[in-house]
Design a protein around this nucleic acid. Structure first.
Lengths: 307, 307
DNA sequence: CAAATAGTGTCTTTTAGACAATATTTA
DNA sequence: TAAATATTGTCTAAAAGACACTATTTG
């Protein structure tokens, strides 16, 4: 950043200026950490097993929300940009210092933190689970990976349509989502139901989600995680290259396809997927090993993105 | 928001808890206010004139950056969500209380505000200039609308390509943008040159822009405005309905087309545009009046958005 | 009628998707 | 070789874009 040059008059003014006489919030940087991994950490003997989209949560050891699960995060420090606070917290938790990190939202609803006025600036991070030094089920600090399921649940998707306008209004305004986070090792299951309040841009404001039910998640993190998952889906749709950050340097196209299927919660048809992805990847000479059947070629991300 | 229920033990803990003993920043909510309007406010006698995409800036009357132009904004108040602070500031400035408002970014780079540790949570707002009670050139508080030009300027777009990989790396990493904001009435011209530093998702982190040159804009607002404009382009591409918020209730399709052309800085072919937009609009019986040639039919936004 | 803008129809190209088929490896 | 997965090719449907054309109003 360029230095700002001041006149003497201005220096004098600022010397007498005190920001701290106004009320100020605490600002936290929290991170929704995404990765993709097998359900049991130890290599599995059974046949090919899908990797799942997961997020990292930490069990709160103290008040408030003692015993509930929360995203990694912490308060911003002076002299540090907010996104760098997020990176620092991420690195402390996972050992990874160069993940893809992107803003999800700013959460400052009054009452969201019983300790007082706390604004959370929340980021999402994408990482390759293999590079991460966190052991699943590490008990020193209880941090665990949870599978993510986020599905729309509105009646049967069809509300009672008395007239067209009302019906479409309801569909717009009444979307409800169920968030389920599971940790297989410990049988922990966290759930929440969210309602989309504002309409998706057909007027007022950008989307926002209200927590209707919540089981086991601290603060307003159910809402934040929901927005992060929806944001991830959109971001990856806009830029497919993002998915590479969830995988190691070398991967098979089937693994890659699986990542998109996990993120979008849908199946892709292989030939079409491959036709689309080919512009972003590069062949290597290496082949996958250790699998039971025909080994697949390994690819890397292509750095000279065309177009 | 659901109320959080506490045990007695927890109440006791929180009673002795004091967030304010830690260092805290000031948090500002700033707004990049977009609208679309003719260059001269008074109706023009000449032939059909394009409306331009503009943003609202306020001339700073005090230190720091006295005399420079800045986005409307102000400090968040306790008991108010950050986006609501943005809405409040917006309403104070323009009289509009129900605009579309969406987060652009969080800016907390150390040194960005000479007064101290100030984090800006910045939003974009879209509004119909007609509904806005601000007079252009109002001198009580010097607030004016500036046309927005944001164009990529990297050599001729073609850097010297010794080899393919290096060339594409440069294109990715070296994108440079020129931002020009002009107010026709007063001949004020604000300019900045930004460099895109992080690659667009091909690794590390989400995009970020560094200010290389800046003339007349306060703080890091050149950077923020740049990110807002780029964000607007993307957002509207993802959801064309957003553009309606920049127009009055009734509009002609030509006016609407013009809005997209302004936002994306490109020409659209009318027949293709109309085929695309038809699903989002509804005919009215009314026709435009006052124009010199064939009057165009007026449309409104369609509320039963399908799909 | 000429000028200027409003609005429509048709063709081509591109992209997305469905689906059938072949190829290679291990047990 | 059978089972399981990897990989390729072809056809179809849908969307995006180019472009020529007709229509209506004013002066």
């Amino acid at each position: 950043m360029k230095t700002y040059e001041m006149s003497d008059e201005e220096k004098e003014f600022l010397a007498g200026y005190d920001l701290t006489k106004y009320d100020r919030p605490s600002v936290a940087a929290d991170v929704v950490v995404f990765s993709v991994m097998k359900d049991d950490e130890c290599e599995d003997v059974r046949r090919l097993q899908e990797k799942k989209l997961k997020i990292l949560l930490i069990r709160r050891g103290g008040f408030p929300y003692k015993g509930s699960w929360a995203m990694p995060g912490g308060f911003c420090r002076k002299g540090e940009d907010v996104i760098d606070s997020a990176r620092r917290e991420l690195c402390e938790e996972t050992g990874i210092g160069d993940a893809y990190v992107k803003l999800v939202g700013v959460y400052g609803e009054p009452g969201r933190d019983p300790r007082g006025w706390v604004i959370s600036s929340t980021y999402m991070a994408l990482m390759n689970a293999g590079a991460c030094s966190l052991k699943a089920g590490d008990d020193a600090q209880d941090a665990r990976w949870f599978t993510v399921e986020l599905t729309e649940v509105s009646g049967t998707g069809e509300e009672i349509a008395k007239n067209e306008v009302e019906a479409s209004y309801k569909v717009q305004n009444g979307k409800r989502y169920r968030l389920v986070l599971k940790n297989a090792d410990s049988d922990i299951k966290l759930t929440a139901v969210l309602r989309k309040t504002d309409m998706s841009s057909c007027g007022r404001s950008s989307d926002s989600y209200d927590i209707e039910e919540c089981e086991g998640l601290a603060f307003d993190h159910a809402r934040i995680i929901t927005e992060a998952v929806l944001g991830l889906r959109e971001d990856v749709r806009r830029d497919m290259k993002l998915a590479f950050d969830l995988l190691p340097d070398r991967f098979t196209l089937t693994e890659l396809q699986n990542v998109y299927e996990q993120i979008w919660d849908m199946e892709l048809t292989t030939p079409n997927f491959r036709r689309k992805i080919v512009e972003y990847v590069e062949e290597t000479d290496a082949y996958q090993s250790g699998e039971r059947y025909r080994p697949a070629k390994l690819f890397t991300r292509r750095n000279d993105a065309r177009k």
